[in-house]
Each structure stands twice: as C-alpha cells, then as structure tokens.
C-alpha cells in the first residue's frame, strides 16, 4: 500500500496503523453492491472540491452500483444520487467497507 494511503488511514482518530489499513482500499477496488464509507480523497484541492460537491468526502457513505467495461467509469450511489466516476479518479478515493 502506498505511503500516502497509509498516512490517511492513520489520520483517522483512534485507529492504529494496522487496524486502519487492513480494510481500507481504493474505490476502484471495491465490489459492486458493497456498502462503503469514504476514508479520504487523495488528490489536489480541485479534485477534493469537485468530489465534495457531489457528496464524496471523508465520512460519507456510498455504494458501487456497477463497473463499466473496457476500463470505463464506475457508477456510484451517493445518497440516492448516481454518479459516474472515471477509474483514474476512483483510484484516488480511499474507502472502507461498512460493518
């Protein structure tokens, strides 16, 4: 796991490195139908802002609806709103499965 991802896991209050990082993954790696919560968005302020506008910011919940073929975007459900996210961006959104 890249160092930047590890650091964001640790930033989450009250979790040790091991606890935090064992179950975190990028949105791109998540399976369809899985309920997820956002841990962090690894990206510049522009991207963080754009995603935050659509409700993807640390602490919010989302669900992958479907992956497209040919390396196309993912469809993600955020509070009942469906958003298409390119795979490059999905690889920058760090999520954790919800219990």
């Amino acid at each position: 796991m890249p160092r930047s991802i590890q650091l964001s896991c640790i930033r989450e209050a009250g979790r040790t490195r091991e606890e935090a990082c064992t179950d975190a993954m990028t949105l791109f790696q998540a399976n369809s139908g899985q309920k997820l919560s956002v841990v962090d968005v690894l990206g510049g302020p522009g991207l963080r802002r754009r995603l935050a506008q659509l409700g993807i910011l640390p602490g919010t919940h989302l669900q992958v609806v479907r992956h497209a073929a040919f390396g196309g975007p993912l469809l993600v459900d955020v509070d009942g709103r469906v958003i298409a996210i390119g795979k490059g961006i999905a690889a920058k959104v760090l999520v954790r499965p919800e219990e």
Binding site: G43, L47, R50, L51, L54, P73, L75, R81, V82, I83, A84, I85, G86, K87, G88, I89
Partner: peptide
C-alpha cells in the same frame, strides 16, 4: 483532465 465525474440523473 483527471477523468470523468458526471451525475447520472434518473
């Protein structure tokens, strides 16, 4: 451009 971010309306 980093990639697609687009809302899909019902």
């Amino acid at each position: 451009s980093p990639g697609l971010i687009l809302e899909i309306p019902p």
